[in-house]
Every structure is written in C-alpha cells, then in structure tokens.
Computed example of a mutant assay.
Amino acid sequence: MKIEELSKKNGAIPEQARSKFEELQNNLGLHFTNKNVLYNAFTHSSYVNEHRRKQYEDNERLEFLGDAVLELTVSKFLFLKFPKMTEGQLTKLRAAIVCEPALVIFANELKFGEFVLLGKGEENTGGRERPALLADCFEAFVGALYLDQGLETVVGFLGKVVFPKVELGMFSDVMDFKSQLQELVQQTSSGSLQYAIVKENGPAHKRTFVSQVILNDVVISEGHGKSKKEAEQKAAQIAIHTLTNKKD
C-alpha cells in the first residue's frame, strides 16, 4: 500500500473537526501533506464504533508505528547526548521517557486531548483526560508525522517537545549524574569532588534544598530539588555541562 493511500477512509472527517486540525497544525508549526493521516492519528476506536457506516479507521496501527519511531529517535538522542552512560543506564532512561506517564505530559502540553475524535460514550466518561488514550494519541501522532514527513521532521518535533525536558532534568530521578560526574572528574583531573547542602527552604512538608558541587575547593555548580538527593543530582548535571563546555 502506498503512503498516500493510508487512512483514506478518514476522508469524510466533519468540517468542524477539519478546522480544529488546521488550528493544531498552526500551533505546532507542522503542516501535513496527507491530512487524512493526521485525522487518523486522532481518531479513537469509540468514534469508529459509532460511525460504522462511514468506515472510519482508528489510530491503533499508527500508535504501533509511532511507538517504534519513538524508541529509535529517543535511543539515538540519548546515545549521542550521554556518551558516558552504560547500556543499562540508557535503557532505564529511555524507558522513563517513552512510558505512559511521560507521554501523557507531552500530550497535555500540546493539548492533544482537545483534538481527539471520540464516541459519545467515551466523551461522557472523561475520555479526553484518560492517560492511556492521551499516551496512545501521542504515539499515533509521531507515527503519522513519520509517514507524512519522515524521520528528520520527527526528530525536529521531539527536539522541541521532548528532548529539552531531558536536558533540563525532568528524568533526573532515573539518571545518575553523580556517577557520571565522578567518572568525568577522574578522567580529567585528580581533584577532590564534594557535595554540600547549603540551604533549606520552606515548611517541613514542602521543603526544598540547594546543593553545591565543589571541585578542588571551588564551587562549580548549584542545584535545587525537593530532596537532598534531587538537589545533588541537579547540581551534578549542571557541573557535567560546565566541565564539558570548558573541555571543548
């Protein structure tokens, strides 16, 4: 089957929905050549079941494809971004990025729930906010984008929506930056590496911490977190960035 023939069943999308999808494309700065593939990505099975005479196609096949595309693109990004990470660390981090809770965050940020075509039953039971539905929709959109515009465009899209969050430490709870920093310091110098909690803020039930990384008695970074461990990990992440840039 040719790509342009995919999702041709969705050619009869209601005009009101077509307008919303134009809004979505404008919001994303992405314009599909094959609009039917885009419609397909947001067509839930409940909508198909309630419109059988119009022979719509749901987004489950695109979800399957998008899952594989996400695995590949995220894997390449992590491989290049974190050269010191072991296979096990990379696998753990990738799993955190492509898991349902993370995909729901990405989908909500883009307001994907507003654009899903749902059956009345699913609509009335809060389907637009259901985590599994939103995660599936994000995967289906990635699959649709890949089919319509190729891998490079997908990478560009993820570079705006997903990858910056990794760099900002959204997944720091599964990334051992302290071990990476220790290895980096050992490779570049024989200096003494220390961590110091220099500040605690807020009430006991909502306390935040500030940690510093000290190399050879010089403070090279500072990190904030809801726990001492998180603050140290954030500080280590910033220190890695600082030392790597100096090396370059």
Rank of each mutant, 00 (worst) to 15 (best):
Gln237Asp: 14
Ile238Tyr: 08
Ile197Gln: 00
Gly202Met: 00
Thr33Asp: 13
Met85Ile: 07
Gly223Val: 00
Val104Thr: 09
Ile238Ala: 09
Asp67Ser: 10
Ser7Met: 15
Ala107Val: 02
Val213His: 00
Leu184Cys: 06
Leu90His: 07
Gln16Phe: 03
Gly150Asp: 10
Tyr195Pro: 01
Glu222Asn: 09
Lys54Asp: 15
His205Tyr: 15
Glu15Asp: 14
Ser7Gly: 15
Val162Met: 04
His241Met: 05
Leu38Ala: 10
Ile220Thr: 04
Leu24Cys: 08
Lys226Met: 14
Lys54Asn: 13
Val98Gln: 08
Asn10Ile: 11
Gln55Ala: 15
Lys2Asn: 07
Arg61Leu: 14
Arg130Cys: 05
Glu60Asp: 14
Lys206Leu: 08
Glu109Trp: 08
Leu93Met: 10
Phe82Val: 05
Ala96Pro: 08
Phe106Lys: 00
Tyr47Ala: 04
Asp136Glu: 11
Leu158Arg: 00
Lys76His: 11
Gln182Arg: 14
Arg128Asn: 11
Lys8Asp: 14
Gly29Ile: 03
Glu50Gln: 13
His224Gln: 02
Tyr47Ser: 02
Leu193Asn: 07
Val218Ile: 15
Glu200Thr: 05
Thr43His: 06
Asn36Pro: 01
Asp148Arg: 00
Val69Ile: 15
Asn26Gly: 09
Ser192Arg: 09
Glu152Val: 12
Ala102Met: 12
Phe141Tyr: 05
Lys178Arg: 12
Glu232Trp: 04
Glu15Asn: 12
Glu5Gly: 04
Ile13Leu: 06
Val142Ser: 06
Ile197Glu: 00
Lys111Met: 04
Asn59Met: 14
Leu193Ile: 09
Lys76Thr: 13
Pro131Glu: 08
Gln25Arg: 12
Lys2Ile: 10
Leu184Arg: 03
Glu15His: 11
Leu193Gln: 04
Met85Pro: 09
Ala204Val: 11
Cys137Trp: 02
Leu78Ile: 15
Leu78Met: 10
Lys120Asn: 13
Met1Arg: 12
Asp176Phe: 02
His205Met: 15
His44Arg: 04
Ala17Met: 07
Tyr56Arg: 00
Leu145Gln: 00
Glu139Val: 03
Phe209Ala: 00
Phe32Cys: 07
Gly127Met: 02
Phe163Tyr: 08
Glu15Tyr: 12
Lys229Gly: 04
Gly121Ile: 09
Phe77Met: 06
Ala135Tyr: 02
Ala196Lys: 03
Ser172His: 06
Val37Asp: 01
Asn40Glu: 14
Asn245Asp: 03
Asp148Thr: 05
Lys120Arg: 14
Ile220Gly: 04
Gly169Phe: 02
Ala132Ser: 12
Leu184Met: 13
Val174Tyr: 07
Tyr146Met: 04
Gln212Thr: 05
Lys76Ile: 12
Gln182Tyr: 13
Ser189Asn: 04
Ala102Val: 07
Asp248Ile: 06
Cys137Ala: 14
Gly66Tyr: 00
Leu62Arg: 01
Leu24Glu: 02
Gln89Tyr: 11
Leu70Phe: 09
Ala196Phe: 13
Leu193Gly: 11
